[in-house]
């Protein structure tokens, strides 16, 4: 066993059966850690942290909003990275990972948009502004939804995986272009944004709950990703068995 090369060790993890047994063992502890982090984060965020001197109690939305926005972007990065690995190395778990990450990332993008909207109403007096960040977040949601729609329409998994990987990679290339074009457009249309408030630094009493929530959300993402990947592998096994049965 000690003579295995790095690529051979990676190959070992590519085996879905090995993945199933390994992920099955770590899933329980991971769920427990996630629950612990989220509970303690929520306690500090909702009860044991001071209200903002400007924004009052509404600042507590931040503890859900900011981690969601981070994970929305991280989800796309995971999806694009897994797609690249699947396309280049034909790693059998990579496209399962990319497919499973998409709905979770889309959910966090949606959560970031909704909490942002709820936060915007008391702060800016409106549910929605065509700010550069909000607009590019909305477009990110559209990219996620297009990716999910492509998976849903192509029936054969191997074919869908390659097409979706192409879409995810072109999207990853385009996300910065779209983002900077929206920023450019926004500065062109509304110089001096109304809502450039917020202190330059964040107080330690707010940073602790924010970091706890960010860690908890990340763990939640990874746990959900593992659950979805396991479900996807089982779904493919069922499909294979049904096809084999139909052949007989």
């Amino acid at each position: 066993m000690s003579t295995l090369s790095t690529s051979q060790r990676l190959q070992a993890f590519a085996n879905p059966t090995r993945f199933m047994s390994l992920s099955g063992r770590i899933l329980g502890p991971m769920a427990a850690v996630t629950a612990l982090l989220l509970l303690s984060g929520l306690y500090f965020a909702l009860l044991d942290s001071p209200p903002d001197y400007q924004q009052g109690e509404t600042v507590r939305i931040m503890y859900v909003h900011v981690p969601s926005a981070w994970l929305a972007m991280m989800g796309y990065m995971i999806m694009a990275g897994a797609s690249a690995i699947g396309l280049i190395f034909r790693h059998p778990l990579a496209d399962v990972c990319a497919k499973s990450a998409a709905p979770i990332g889309a959910a966090f993008t949606f959560l970031a948009l909704v909490t942002g909207s709820l936060w915007g109403k008391p702060m800016w007096g409106t549910w929605w502004v065509w700010d550069a960040r909000l607009t590019s977040m909305l477009i990110l949601l559209f990219l996620y939804l297009g990716y999910i729609a492509l998976w849903a329409t192509i029936e054969e998994p191997a074919r869908a995986a390659r097409g979706a990987a192409v879409l995810a990679l072109v999207g990853a290339l385009n996300v910065p272009i779209i983002h900077y074009s929206v920023v450019w457009w926004n500065t062109l249309h509304q110089p001096a944004s109304v809502f450039r408030m917020g202190g330059p630094t964040i107080a330690a009493s707010m940073l602790t709950p924010l970091m706890l929530m960010a860690l908890g959300f990340t763990m939640l993402f990874v746990t959900l990703l593992l659950v979805r990947m396991r479900a996807e592998i089982l779904r493919r096994r069922v499909r294979g068995l049904l096809l084999a049965k139909a052949d007989m």
Partner: peptide, 10 residues
């Protein structure tokens, strides 16, 4: 159209 529209934004 759904897939391509976001790429047309820039």
């Amino acid at each position: 159209s759904l897939l391509v529209m976001p790429f047309y934004i820039p």
